[in-house]
């Protein structure tokens, strides 16, 4: 059985390695295309919205600093994905920007997604506290097959 495109959320951490290994194995067995995704969280400006008194430079400096960490995380995720998918055909990796929860829910409900695979703690390494509830939200809202790893 071919699942269609398998989408796996990767963040470069040990937590996402298990999910990635299973996604690779499944894609090999089923000869399915495999897409790795990383999401740069753009919600930080909103998250610190309650801070009204920071100097503009301090505020922007902080957002740039977080952005830099997330870009480094994206590179780590790409490397992790490329190492795991060596010699495989039909693989791609993409970096999205937005709210990680909203984008993963969208992926998990898209007709183009055959199956979504993710670790329960994915994106928590550089994320806001609400990302702890990402897996729960996915189980409630995903309309495509979903595989979650501890």
């Amino acid at each position: 059985m071919n699942y269609g495109n398998i989408v796996v959320a990767v963040d470069g951490s040990d937590a996402s390695q298990d999910a990635l290994n299973h996604a690779v194995e499944l894609a090999r067995q089923r000869n399915s295309p495999l897409t790795g995704i990383f999401i740069i969280d753009t919600q930080w400006a909103d998250f610190i919205g309650n801070d009204w008194q920071s100097a503009k430079g301090a505020r922007q400096g902080f957002l740039d600093y977080i952005r830099k960490e997330q870009e480094e995380q994206a590179e780590a995720a790409r490397t992790q994905f490329e190492l795991a998918t060596q010699k495989m055909e039909q693989v791609s990796f993409s970096v999205h920007a937005g709210d990680p929860t909203a984008i993963l829910v969208e992926q998990a409900s898209s007709e183009k997604t055959g199956m979504l695979i993710a670790g329960r703690r994915v994106f928590q390494v550089s994320g806001r506290p609400s990302l702890k509830a990402l897996a729960t939200t996915l189980t409630k809202k995903a309309s495509r097959p979903l595989l979650l790893f501890p």
């Binding site: 610190i48 902080f62 977080i66 997330q70 506290p129």
Partner: peptide, 23 residues
Amino acid sequence: VSAAVATAPAVEAKASHVAYAIA
């Protein structure tokens, strides 16, 4: 929050650390 925002880059704090401090 303002102090967390001002301090985080100076002490190389991880995004998740700052996020938990702010919350």
